[in-house]
Simulated assay, not measured.
Amino acid sequence: MSGPPPAVATVRSAVRRVLADLPSDTTALVACSGGADSLALAGAVAFEAPRVGRAAGAVTVDHGLQEGSAERAESVAGVLRGLGLSPVSVRTVAVTGPGGPEAAARRARYEALDAAVAEHAPAVVLLAHTMDDQAETVLLGLARGSGARSLSGMAPRNGHYLRPLLDLDRATVRAACDRMGLVAWEDPHNADHRYARSRVRHEALPALERTLGPGIAAALARTAAMLRADADTLDGLAGELYTAALGGADGADAADTPAPDASCAPDTAGTASGPELSVAPLSEAPAALRTRVLRRAALAAGCPAGALTARHVREIERLVTQWRGQAHIDLPGGVRVRRVAGNLRFVR
């Protein structure tokens, strides 16, 4: 007796490994837009979940960005129920806030998925990102001049989000969708060149393939995996340094305190206290760890992650490595950093 088509078998195998590792009481929720990748994932989960004794449902998010989006979301939900997935829910969101439409839609989508996880806890969400999506993410991070963490792309698991198809190329996943007999809907935003990811998908990656030869997506995905391992190690060491700097931030060094003029007056009125870090362990640490600690402290003090750049972190670092009595560093989100008595004070 012949088995399933190779593409279907490949997708099912990737899903089976992820589902089998889940606790038996955990519900697996497929995030499905109705596109080929997420439909292939949904079909594979519907097939494999009963065989490994796991409950499996799905969530589709209506962003309300196109005419007829509510009807389309209900249609996708009907397909998911037809596959045997349960529970299946439609979450309607409002796409608003800073960062442009791509960032706002992503933020709203993940808030909806988080709410679904809370409702069906214990639960996880399975996302249909492929190797090609990973390559696009790496290129976008590279274009922004991001650090190793951004260039490490998407993790196979991040909290309650799992990506079973991250090692599979898009062509295989879409072939699986076709062979399962599922009719996909292609979001027109995916081909809209106003969006950076669309330009990377339809212009940048094909240009790299033409110039450098095939296999670029796989090479970028391998690079992301290696950088992720490095970043995980560095983040662990930076966490130890952060704890040491917090623990040492109670000493005083009179030579380190600026003259008491107006520009150097303590920031106490109308401010919220953030982390205070001892300069000594930071000055002795490698720059790769020091900058991670300084970024973490700035975020803890209230800096918006999207607005805090490498330039900001370098300016904070100068208070450690090139101290010349500078008054303070102002950061996004109304955060101010000052060096006083051998410590870096982050206040808002």
Rank of each mutant, 00 (worst) to 15 (best):
R54H: 07
R318C: 02
I316G: 00
W323R: 14
L344T: 03
R290K: 07
R17T: 12
P266K: 15
M154P: 00
A104T: 04
M154V: 11
L277C: 10
T291R: 15
N190Q: 12
A77E: 07
A73H: 11
G35F: 07
G145Q: 13
V337L: 11
A7T: 00
A184R: 06
A305T: 10
T92G: 03
Y242M: 10
L208A: 12
A44S: 07
A171K: 04
H312L: 12
V173H: 05
W323G: 03
A280F: 06
D192T: 02
L282T: 08
D187A: 06
G82K: 11
G236E: 12
S89I: 08
S278F: 11
L139D: 03
T26V: 13
A135M: 00
P281G: 15
R163Q: 14
R290T: 10
G325N: 08
R107A: 13
A112L: 10
L85R: 07
G302V: 13
A31Q: 02
D250Y: 14
H202W: 11
G147C: 13
A221R: 07
T26G: 02
R345E: 14
R107E: 09
T257I: 08
V11S: 01
P304F: 12
Q326G: 09
P214K: 08
D132E: 07
A148N: 02
M180H: 04
A305R: 14
V293E: 09
G84K: 14
G251L: 14
T233L: 14
G306V: 05
P5H: 12
R16D: 08
T130K: 06
G43R: 13
L212I: 01
S152T: 06
G99Q: 08
A204G: 00
M154D: 06
V313L: 14
D261S: 11
A307E: 08
D261A: 10
G239A: 12
A341F: 09
V337A: 15
R72P: 00
R210D: 12
V347Y: 12
A300C: 06
P4G: 11
A231N: 02
R144S: 04
L308A: 02
L241E: 04
H312Y: 10
V45A: 06
D114G: 01
R170V: 02
M180T: 02
A115S: 09
A231V: 02
L299Y: 05
G215R: 03
A49R: 15
L205Q: 00
I316T: 07
D250R: 15
R157H: 10
V11M: 03
A224T: 06
S33I: 06
A298F: 09
W323Q: 09
A244I: 01
R51V: 05
L162D: 01
V320L: 12
L142F: 13
T172M: 04
A229L: 09
D178N: 05
L308H: 01
R296I: 08
D192H: 04
R338M: 12
L142K: 05
A176E: 01
L151D: 00
A229Q: 07
D114W: 09
R12G: 11
R290P: 00
L127K: 02
V125F: 05
P164R: 15
Y161M: 06
S13Q: 15
A272N: 10
H312V: 10
A121T: 03
L80I: 05
A219W: 14
G239F: 07
V11L: 03
M154Q: 08
